[in-house]
Design a protein around this nucleic acid. Structure first.
Lengths: 243, 243
DNA sequence: CGTACGGTTGAGCTCACTCAATAAGGGTGG
DNA sequence: CCACCCTTATTGAGTGAGCTCAACCGTACG
């Protein structure tokens, strides 16, 4: 299990996924196309299957998540807990010198456009503008993280669950379909939100009972009443932001 | 109240505080002394009194905290809550484009070596090495923030209080004296840790009753049994890090 | 057909919150 | 110096959200 599964020797991938290469990603803002092409030539499109540990040849991977999701897993003693969730378009970033015991793990079939940490470091040194963009993104991430956890620390169980569902619904893989796939087990949602599996289950069922969401299967849901869900997050007063 | 109080027109301050200029701060790592001097010439030593809103001419301030502490205050609706605490040697950083409703506020008499955000931005563009250092620091901060809040979200009230006391004891202004000054009211500690004032009071008194700490006044304490306090944080299994 | 794993549901308990009353400082003005 | 006020801290009693423990269901898979 947890086998490393980068897309088989597909270094030529930049061409393959050029069609979906996010030129408009903030990471590339203000860079001339020629530079982007050069950067992209260093990056590859990695594909991971469910639960795969995300790394390139045992080296940390830096990159943009194209599809799927990445869970940040902390293993302490014998219990694992999910301490963060990265969604498409998010940046999988380097986290300073200390690696700590936190590892990224794929949730569902996941594609990442990226390169190894040392390679990325070289890119940063070569393209100052890229470095500035990266800095901005890391800073934004820092702020988002602070908001996320700060609010989580103060939210009730239903508020936390509502917040997560809303977040996931906004990052749905299929914006055309109203049905979204949580992709996470109750237990994983629990560790992510600091709740117990049973509590998560109860909250989700309660929302379903209230008609706020529809439950097709444990992980397939549809948001029926966005307003009510929004209200349930307890964030009504701030309306916007909150990713 | 909350009046802006930079050290009166003291732009010449770099010389004044040169003695305590943290040349060894990671922000300046690897920079030639000449560059550091040049950077320092742009920075000034700001001094804020208790509860002062930290800013330079209404512009966000970036810099290194030399003494005192900075609370990150979020004002939402009519209630304020402390969502973070920065201690000496910490970096007061820019947090991406969005400013959000979070403002830094001085806790006690606080000194900051820094400059306005635009000025700092210019410095970053001028000294690539400074930019790399800053990036590393922001990334580290991100990781530390994630750990901090992640753990907070899962900790019990006594664990949270123990964690804060330990953190404060490690950043004591007077390493010679065993007595540390919390500088924060019970209410502020409460908003910082996601607890109620009464709960904070109860936990602190409980630690005192157990002989783990000594209480000289509500804010002046001494850690008598570091081991027990460490154990009370619930972090025994990871021993180190945890700032 | 049985086993396993994820999900659901119920009963009881605990910890932190709420409400409320009381103390302890710390200034300020007489 | 003392009386007073205002903020902060302490302490108690009762409540409730979320946890624990435990049983049960449903689907996938060998």
């Amino acid at each position: 299990m947890n086998a490393l599964t980068p897309l088989s020797e597909a270094t030529a991938l930049p061409l393959t996924c050029a069609g979906l290469l996010p030129f408009d990603h903030p990471l590339f803002a203000g860079l001339p196309l020629s530079d982007i092409a050069e950067i992209a030539s260093v990056m590859s499109c990695y594909r991971f299957k469910d639960d795969a540990l995300i790394a390139a040849d045992d080296v940390p991977l830096v990159g943009i998540i194209l599809a799927g999701a990445v869970a940040r897993i902390a293993k302490q003693w014998d219990q694992v807990s999910t301490v963060g969730l990265l969604l498409p378009n998010d940046l999988l970033i380097l986290e300073g010198p200390r690696t700590a015991a936190i590892h990224p793990e794929a949730v569902g079939l996941t594609e990442i456009l990226g390169c190894s940490a040392p390679e990325f470091d070289a890119l940063l040194r070569r393209f100052p503008k890229l470095q500035l963009n990266y800095l901005d993104l890391v800073a934004s991430e820092l702020q988002a993280t602070r908001e996320w956890y700060t609010l989580l620390g103060r939210k009730t169980a239903p508020e936390r669950v509502a917040t997560l569902i809303l977040k996931l619904s906004r990052h749905s893989d299929h914006p055309d379909s109203p049905v979204i796939d949580l992709r996470l087990t109750r237990d994983r949602i629990g560790t992510l939100l600091g709740l117990k599996m049973e509590t998560v289950s109860r909250q989700i069922r309660a929302f379903a009972k209230l008609g706020i969401i529809a439950l097709f299967s444990p992980t397939k849901i549809e948001v029926l009443d966005h307003g009510a869900l929004m209200h349930a997050t307890g964030d009504v007063w701030r309306e916007k932001t909150m990713l």
